[in-house]
Amino acid sequence: MPSNRTLPELVCPAGNLPALKAAVDNGADTVYLGLKNNTNARNFAGLNFDATSAREGIRYARERGRHVLLAINTYAQGADIGRWRAAIDEAADLGVDAVIVADIGLMDYAARRHPDLRLHMSVQGSATNYEAINLAHELFGIRRAVLPRVLTLDQVRHVIENTAVEIEVFGFGSLCVMVEGRCLLSSYATGESPNTHGVCSPARFVRWEHGAESLDARLNGILIDRYRKDEAAGYPTLCKGRFQVADDTYYALEEPTSLNVMEMLPQLIEIGVAAIKVEGRQRSPAYTAQVTRALREALDAAGREGSRFTVRPGWQQALAKVSEGQQQTLGAYSRPWK
């Protein structure tokens, strides 16, 4: 029986204007972006938007009936809270449809200063249960929460059933394992982490060393992984490295892999998720176009076909090709734990 629920919003990443246009042109309902500084968790050199490109992007999306979200999802750092507040002010000024925020101090600021600015709680806010989400709703009026990639489908359903806040879940992209908003692994190697500096494994600490038989990935000198010739590579993040534990060298924490929920789309629609998010503001417009197109078609089909829905090989191929480590998983959604 086809589901009579409304389709979740497809929320796609944009690291720059061409990617934003690619997302809109290929069927994203909503595009999310960040500013050119450490107020967002993809603070990479040359990536992201300044006021001019943001305005142009917002205009492009609006003209086509789409929404734009601004991620201000790192934690304001002691000495310099002003920059984060300024980012909130800028978001209000730009007139984005919502801001994605992790830091509750910043939510408080936004709620007081810009009561009309819609607030979404970032995945970095690490709210994994409805009590946390409802509290943020009571205190700051958040309208949506992005769930960390740690919950099973049943747990997601349970959250949705117990909150009035819209729930957004991840649908595709590189996995940041299990500890979103709480991870200090890259701080261990470099002194910088996503929550503080907006970047996991900062590029200036990364070195790729090409040997005769292998490719070595180093993060601030620490050997993260050694790929054999032609073996698929991943991002040089500590959580996805191979390490020597006792006498074994293996992916001790997590394998380089991408989340892909395509086969679960009918269930996600059924339990009433409000939005499905694609990871990857650091990727190029080609990625945004390919992933958005595949998920748009899949989501529309899942909405039409309900339980008869099957994943088409073409979509799967498109997503498999762009996946980190070229492996895919349903992640926590399908774990047996309760």
């Binding site: 698929a232 590579a233 990727r283 417009p285 080609a286 990625y287 090709k321 762009v322 980190e324």
Partner: peptide, 8 residues
């Protein structure tokens, strides 16, 4: 996407 080519 260059990252795709790099992973591959």
């Amino acid at each position: 996407d260059p990252d795709t080519l790099f992973f591959n």
